[in-house]
Computed example of a mutant assay.
Amino acid sequence: MTAPAYRARVAALLAYVTESHLIGAHVAPVRADSPWDIWWVCYRAQTPAPDLGLRVWAHPGACGRCFDTATALTQAGPVRHPDSLTQSPCTCLVDWAKLMRAAGGDTDWPPLRTSVAMVKPGGDAPAVLQALSRDHLVTAVTTRTLTATDARRLYPDAYGAEYVARQDDYLTSSPVTVYALLLNGDAARNPKDLKLGIRAQLADGDVLRNHLHMPDSPGDALCDLAHLISENTRDDLYGRYDRVAAEHRIARYRDCLDFG
């Protein structure tokens, strides 16, 4: 069996603090594998660590320079990207980003109905809408033009100057269409299969131009919905359809984390 990707544990931390924040629950101090895990969570949520109630212990062997840099980026809003630094960050950052982008097995997430789908520039929005609305409820739609800052927030662990430049150029090239979703059935547990199925139906594309961005995990879904549509839409859908099982999901996320 393929081991879960490194990213899954960091995504569990994002889900843990995001849902705890939404329901006003206490967030316990977490021991992270890398200081950049904490930065990624705060940057995805665009919320400083103190506002998330996120207190961090340095994992034994963690790079002191990275810990200081990541902490400085996350202590006040807006949470900043390492690109904003006047001094180049430690090479540990690229090593961490490669771990985040590495392949791994699927994660058995607890089901979350609230989600979002973004049709990328040049994508077939009517075909994506038809595929989504066949089994799931589209509750809102908006069209917007992304900025480079938006692209960073969607993919903060993208690495390599050439790749990042191509990603920015593509994602900001024309308007995107965004759908707020209520997922049903297996898709609420594993939205990745729904995303890959729609991409397969539409066939053409590459690693960038593949029609559809759709988050694979609960924390990513909640952050992307707030980012791409609005916090009000996110809070309304979550409160109506997912709040009732929040404690169960939070307990599952905690099982993945190290509280020392």
Rank of each mutant, 00 (worst) to 15 (best):
L52T: 11
A11T: 10
R152Y: 07
N210D: 08
L13Y: 10
C66I: 04
P218G: 12
T91N: 15
D106Q: 09
V244N: 12
L194S: 01
L196Y: 10
T71H: 14
G185V: 03
Y253A: 12
V207I: 11
Y170H: 10
R113I: 06
H26N: 14
T172L: 05
T143G: 07
V10K: 11
L196R: 09
D258F: 09
W109C: 11
L257W: 08
L22C: 08
K195W: 03
E231R: 14
R153Q: 15
L112E: 04
L73R: 03
D37C: 05
Q201C: 00
V178T: 13
T172W: 02
Y170C: 05
D204C: 09
T47A: 08
P4L: 13
G185W: 00
K120Q: 03
D235C: 10
D206W: 02
T139H: 06
T91D: 14
A5D: 13
T69E: 12
A62S: 15
G260Y: 13
T177P: 04
Y16I: 11
R199S: 00
V41Y: 05
Q201L: 02
R44C: 11
H81S: 06
A70R: 07
A3N: 12
T114M: 04
P60Y: 15
S230F: 08
R249N: 02
V30D: 07
C42H: 07
G104I: 02
R166S: 10
I23V: 14
